[in-house]
Nucleic acid binder design. Sequence first.
RNA 1: GCCCAGGUGGCGGAACUGGUAGACGCGCUGGAUUCAAAAUCCAGUUCUUUCGGGAGUGAGGGUUCGAUUCCCUCCCUGGGUACCA
Length: 983
Amino acid sequence: MDYDFRAIESKWQKFWAENKTYKVEENEQPKYYVLDMFPYPSGAGLHVGHPLGYIASDVFSRYKKLKGFNVLHPSGYDSFGLPAEQYAIQTGQHPAVTTENNIKRYREQLDKIGFCFDWDREVRTSDPSYYKWTQWIFKQLFDCWYNKETDKAERIADLVAKFESNGNKLVKADTSCETEFSAEEWRTYSEKEQSDLLQQYRLTYLDDAWVNWCPALGTVLANDEIKDGVSERGGYPVEQKLMRQWMMRITAYANRLLDGLEKIDWTDSIKDQQRNWIGKSKGASVRFKVDGFEEEIEVFTTRPDTIFGVSFMTLAPEHELVGKITSADCKAKVDAYVKAASLKTERDRQSDVKNITGEFIGAYAINPISGEKVPIWIGDYVLASYGTGAVMAVPCGDQRDYDFAKAFGIEIKNIFKDVDISKEACDDKSAIIANSDFLNDLPAKKAIGVAIQKIQELGVGKGKTQFRLRDAVFSRQRYWGEPFPVYYENGIPKMVPDDQLPVELPEVDKYLPTEDGEPPLARAKKENWPTFLGDRMEYNTMPGWAGSSWYFMRYTDPTNEKEFISKEKIDYWGNVDLYIGGSEHATGHLLYARFWTKFLYDLGYVPFNEPFQKMINQGMILGNSSFVYRLELASFFIPGLDDPNQVPAVKEFPEIFVTKEIYDDWANNEKLNMHYKQVVSKLESILNRLIPGDLSQVLSNVKWEYSFTKLHADISLVDNGVLNTEGFRNWRRDYRDAEFVLNKDGKYICGSEVEKMSKSKFNVQTPDELVDKFGADTLRLYEMFLGPLEQSKPWDTKGINGVHNFLRKLWRLFHDQDNNLTISEEAATDKELKTLHKTIKKIQDDLERFSFNTGVSNFMIAVNELTDYNCHKKDILEPLLILISPYAPHICEELWEKIGNAPGTMTKAQFPKFEEKFLVEANYAYPVSFNGKMRFKLELPTNLSKEEVEKEVLASDLSAKYLEGKAPKKIIVVPGKIVNVVL
RNA sequence: GCCCAGGUGGCGGAACUGGUAGACGCGCUGGAUUCAAAAUCCAGUUCUUUCGGGAGUGAGGGUUCGAUUCCCUCCCUGGGUACCA
């Protein structure tokens, strides 16, 4: 074999590991920080979709190194997580053991692809030396409050000092505390009372929060683990349960999280998702009295200027006043509506736009500005979880309110001057207000301010900015997560002192919750806890996003035992310059990491406000799933056969699978389709076998009832759409006796669909087999060659030969037919230099704009051209190797060494310098267009002026044909580009 | 519903600031080499055609000497979502 990739790749992988080629230290060079999103080491290992982003970041890191940067490109593992815990529950094996095994497998797979990670910087969230500092950060959050005056986090001690001197009256904090107290009062409070009050100021605090509790599973479930009110797994009932939880006061940072988006280079899509998630809206909160009751209804509105247009009020069905103010005659209907709404999920309520529902509750609200009485309705388009759960409905100015009013025949008042609202609402903020007393003749923009002023004067409300963002629940009732550095004493939560960190996970007998629903850690006895203080330790653990909210900082100083990171290191490395990962973390990890970064910035621990300066979201690699079609026999009836004992049961039939054509035919609902006969004859032959004796006479009239279901088949059993039926029978026990109805060529054709790659869809392609067959360099090039990084694309290995051939061609540029090195010291020709410098420019430009796929094409073009020139010159090939090395490091290192460089110095090479002079040409073939249509090319010297070009074009014989003797109206000449003749 | 991304040959895709549409690769067709196959090499490959051309980047308009690129309207696909008051 000429290009022996197996030998080359294992040689260099070994060399790099032994010589620590990719180790980085702080130095004089400018820094560049490239990071991949934290991988979770799942038991399934890597599939071809995972390395896509890692390859891109690896190529970019290597490129930046060649450009003279000191590049930090680390990796590690987000190694706490649910799958390991679930496996532990099933097998009793400690999750640390499973996790360790999974990491080993991941590492092996990663190493085979030849990444330039500095593994000396590896971090694992589940390692006590790491989570010690996650706990430490938690303690800092506990020890801080948010000062709205300075707009940053400050120490609790300062707050306590303020309380001691002035109480909380003058303190402008982000707090849930609504009671006011003086300094004297503060001093009289007990320790418990003070602790409870401070909780309302701390950035992490204990509070009761509703969770989805599933008693049968003994766990709390996420929203998407619940389908139709029961657990997705097992179908057990789920109830709402109030639980004491650690919360994160992320809402204190809402404004800064929003504003910070302006300064970072992320896609609009992710930024929009974060903006929507934070959901800032400005407006006013207004209180409406309920006619005949003491109670008031508070609403939030972004359009206080339309308050004279309020025609009715809508409450969420869950609104606490609904029970109190509903009139007796409406009660039955309202109760029924509330019940119906409670059965719908928020999603259902949101997606059902066409079906407008609601119910009048027989009560009236009084408009605090106009004094008008308006009916109160409930409607499930109003959600209790947002704002106050009540809407002042202005149908003339809001389409949703408009549709509601129309649906129930509620009067629609018009408060806009010269605007027709007979068809739809008017939400144009430039419309002029009318019929609105003091707001008349003002446009909305001005009227909003005036309205708020009036509302405040009258004391019926105030201007308000509302956020959708809610404080984040930070407790999980799980085992495999960071323990909190918290213990309880007399019911007061206290922090474990720094010198006793980390609080390590205790051993437990089972990884399940206790019978009374306490988290697994409650199983640990006092002596099981490596650290135990007070009456008891905290039983909850931290969520997955705890460790991943600061891991990018730890890479700069991964083994520091004294601090979470040192000031010098983080000052040198700064924030992440390029972050590559999927967009699925848009409102999770990416928001929380920004929150923690801003917090640590406030305390002066890190010099940056935003963790990830530029981010690229790689598209998903989709799998090509294969499907088989199983016949589901419902029943059958044999006319001439009366003895029921002679009739076999449906379940005695083997599994029957039909080829795609038959399924398609059936799915197209052709009753007596052309394949019907084949299916029936298969069924009859099976029936014949099941019934003893020859019954062929009787069998001809059997009535069959059946349908088909589509099932995933493992893609390894399918070749070019054709199922390996024998392999399929052996795939699973139930299919051992499967029968197949084949197509006319005697083949079983599978269906195929492009879907997300996942184990459950049996469409996973691992990188291992490809590395084995073609080598890591080929895989790296191929994954980059597939298309733009950001786009999702189906995985298909059809084209992989193309890039593999490219590498072989590259190899052959350095070797003769007998695979002997042939490299010449001869001076390069102009043509060869042009190819080289054209390529340098392309590769550099493409990489600077993260266009990895076009880079590969350009290598191919260069190698094709040099092959044509029969070029074996070192002056050309050596720089070319440097260009290709970020993509295909193994083969390049090998050739680099072969042509006389010291081994392992490839990464220290300098990216070749592009020189314009080699691209300068004496002539250029101008494309000449007539009325915008390209007709021919005309070779002209590049130094001609516009006028000269024009003259040459008109004088050309080729032009005569298109001019047809007419004089052109106009001629456009773009020098070096194009000529267009307008007739 | 709303927000975002996208729609170019048989396929993956290229065309960067409005300037030769289809680079590069796959696949396919024909040929060379071979006893044969693989591999390799050469030629062709958007569609259509009366071989002069004509049409063509989801559809329809617009701006422009010139539009895949900019603007408007619409359709389709994928992702996100909370009817957010």
